[in-house]
């Protein structure tokens, strides 16, 4: 696979209701060179952060109280300003119907927990390879 030139300074929002999972994802992203991250514990807190702008990438869990990840994804796609924001779902939800729904809602990548650093890296690279190709 060709090496993708990723912008290491891009601003990433990590959304998960468990602080330990947010920390794991944050550490993995840091190992990949992405240090510009922010955190939210569910869709309800994430959406206003996204709307206030500046984020280049969204990594979200599915199962969260308040607003779930799939609803957050739909809200993002419905917002003209956020519609093209790349979204990676990192979740324990592994039903085929769920993956299909996420795909139809416009997710850019889907990683099932438990996952490895390698898988996360691959998916992020793949997402931005496509974004680069289309944009």
């Amino acid at each position: 696979m060709r090496e993708v030139a990723l912008d290491k300074n891009m601003k990433i929002l990590i959304v998960d209701d468990f602080s330990t999972m947010r920390r794991i994802i944050k550490n993995l992203l840091r190992d990949l060179g992405f240090t510009n991250t922010a955190e939210a514990d569910d869709g309800q807190t994430a959406l206003p952060m996204l709307k206030s702008g500046g984020f280049d990438f969204l990594v979200t869990d599915w199962n969260m109280p308040g607003m779930t990840g799939i609803d957050l994804l739909k809200a993002v796609r419905a917002d003209p300003k956020l519609a093209s924001l790349p979204v990676l779902m990192v979740t324990a939800e592994a039903k085929r119907d769920q993956i299909v729904e996420a795909a139809q809602a416009g997710v850019n990548g889907y990683v099932v927990k438990p996952f490895t650093a390698q898988v996360l890296k691959e998916k992020i690279e793949k997402i931005f390879e496509r974004v680069d190709a289309s944009g």
């Binding site: 199962n63 799939i70 324990a92 939800e93 039903k95 085929r96 769920q98 099932v112 996952f115």
Partner: peptide
């Protein structure tokens, strides 16, 4: 069918659940 239920139990016995990445 798509409501969140957390980690799926007995995933290997279920046909509606994927077994991995």
């Amino acid at each position: 069918k798509t409501v969140a239920e957390g980690p799926q139990m007995r995933a290997e016995e279920r046909t509606d659940v994927v077994s991995g990445q």
